[in-house]
Each structure stands twice: as C-alpha cells, then as structure tokens.
C-alpha cells in the first residue's frame, strides 16, 4: 500500500468516526432518549460478553456499541497494572479497565479522532475517574515510552489501520518484558468481494480493512510476540455489526442484496487474541 493511500485511509476513518460521535451526542441529550442508540449499544455489548455489572459501572455515554467486544482482556487485568487502549473511542474499555486496575493502576487511551478523545475526557471528568488519561495519537506512532505498560488492549480497531504490522510492532515496543497484548478484532476467513473491498463505508464499518486471520496472527508473531493464542472466535459478527444504526446505513448505501450479505457474513469473524512480550533475560538464561 502506498504512503498516500495509507494517509487517505486514516483521514477517511478519522472523519467517519468523528461523524459517529456527533450523531451520537446530538440525539443523546438527557431529555431525549427515544432516538438514541444507547440501548442498542448496551444490548450489543451484552451479546459480546460484557456483564450487566460492568456496563452499569462505566459512564453511560462511553459505550458507543462500536466494538466487537474484549471482556476477556478486561477480566485479565490486575490491581495496579498500567494499561494502554489502542483506539479508545469514547472510553468504554478504558473505564472498565480503570475499575479493574484500581487507584494504583493507570489506564491510557489513545485515539486519533479529536471528537472521540473530547468525549472520552468529558466522560472521565463527569464520573471522576482519576486513573484514566486520554491522548490524541496514532496507534501506528504511539506517543508512549518503551517498556512502560503491562497490558495493551484494543477492541475492534486495528482492522482500521492501513499498517497493522506497524501497530503490532508499536504495541510490542511499549510493553514491558512479560507484558501482554490482549486484543479483539475482525478478521477474514476468505477474501471479500471487490465491491465491499473498495467501499469507504465498509472500511469504516470494520469490514474492508480486515485481513485474513493467518495474516493477522503472523503479523503479531513477526512483531516479536510469543505464546500467541486465539482465545475466542465468533462467526457471523455481521449480525451485530449490521444491527448497528451506522452499519445498516452502510448496507443501504452500498445497495447490497441480502444473499450477497450472507456470503460476506460467512467470510468475516471476530477473534480475541493474546500474546506475550518475551523477557529476553529469561530466554538467555534458559539457552
């Protein structure tokens, strides 16, 4: 992929998500909850494995229902850990993580969409989260020091990056030795038809940017991670992606016939992957 094309994709994705924030906030005023997709976001979040308790314990506006779900990563967090969320959006997973790592831990969310980061920060302020910070940044160029975080999490975001291998290398760099990568994402079981591949809407909808499952896992391996495990795989994620108000607009815009959608649906799955940054000292001692 050329540099120009990569930059174009990033801009399209950023503008697309800025639009989602604006739509969401314009209808989510407290006086008017009827047209909002907050209920739908909660329903979808339950479907992908978050519990009622978790959903209740975070700022209401932080859940835009955009992720494919990363409850396993959240469950693995320990008191006092430093967590970095790649593509933190309105902060949903960051707040869940903050509740797990407690006062002595800290959570940093990085997102390239100013509107998302603004929203996340105001959510943090309103609910007095002291251990969560958000910064504007690119996941391909993380503004984070080497060997400084315990866990890198990401929920259905890396598929949007035109340079996924670089994202994995950056995650590897910022993790401490023995640190872990715990991500969920959309991947392909077979290549998508061209009309989807070339669609900007489908790119924003976490579809066209997705790569083959093997390619994805190989990228993680090439970055240096070890003990890579696919913890979970779910088929037909389009059921919940395309339940989303934004996604149904994608289908309408593309005028995709339903039988074609079934074909696309069987090509895409959501996966949860984990990997460990090896502790080099230990490796040397062992060999």
């Amino acid at each position: 992929m050329t540099k120009v094309r990569k930059e174009e994709i990033k801009k399209v994705v950023r503008d697309g998500y800025a639009k989602i924030v604006k739509q969401n906030s314009s209808c989510c005023t407290p006086a008017n909850s009827c047209c909002c997709n907050a209920d739908l976001a909660q329903d979808m979040s339950k479907k992908v494995g978050y519990t009622d308790e978790e959903l209740k314990a975070v700022p209401e506006n932080s859940n835009l229902g955009l992720g494919c779900g990363n409850p396993v990563a959240i469950a693995s967090l320990k008191e006092g850990e430093t967590v970095l969320d790649l593509g933190s959006g309105a902060g949903f997973d960051c707040f869940l993580a903050a509740n797990k790592v407690g006062k002595n831990g800290r959570v940093i969310g990085v997102d390239m969409t100013p509107e998302m980061v603004d929203k996340a920060r105001s959510n943090a302020r309103n609910d007095n989260y002291e251990n969560v910070e958000f910064r504007l940044g690119e996941i391909e160029n993380l503004p984070v020091a080497d060997n400084s975080v315990d866990v890198v999490i990401s929920n259905c975001v890396i598929n949007l990056s035109p340079d996924k291998e670089r994202v994995f290398r950056e995650a590897f760099r910022v993790l401490k030795p023995d640190g872990r990568l715990m991500i969920s994402d959309m991947v392909l079981l077979k290549e998508l038809p061209d009309f989807i591949k070339n669609s900007v809407e489908a790119y924003i909808g976490c579809l066209s940017g997705a790569v083959m499952r093997n390619e994805y896992v190989e990228g993680i391996k090439r970055a240096g991670f070890q003990d890579i495990r696919i913890i979970d795989e779910k088929s037909s994620p389009l059921d919940y992606i395309f339940n989303d108000a934004n996604a149904s607009a994608i289908i309408e815009n593309l005028e995709i016939p339903s039988e074609k959608m079934k074909e696309v649906s069987s090509s895409v799955i959501s996966i949860k992957v984990s990997g460990i940054k090896p502790n080099k000292k230990c490796d040397i001692e062992l060999t």
């Binding site: 910070e133 690119e138 503004p143 020091a145 080497d146 400084s148 975080v149 760099r173």
Partner: peptide, 18 residues
Amino acid sequence: MKRDLMDILACPMCKCDL
C-alpha cells in the same frame, strides 16, 4: 493530562522523552 504520566509519554516520532 496528569504531570505524573510524563514518565510513560514519548515523542510519537523518535520516542525520546518530552
């Protein structure tokens, strides 16, 4: 941003301290 988070912050390009 909190001052005490400076220790894990780095330049996005060269990764040096800020």
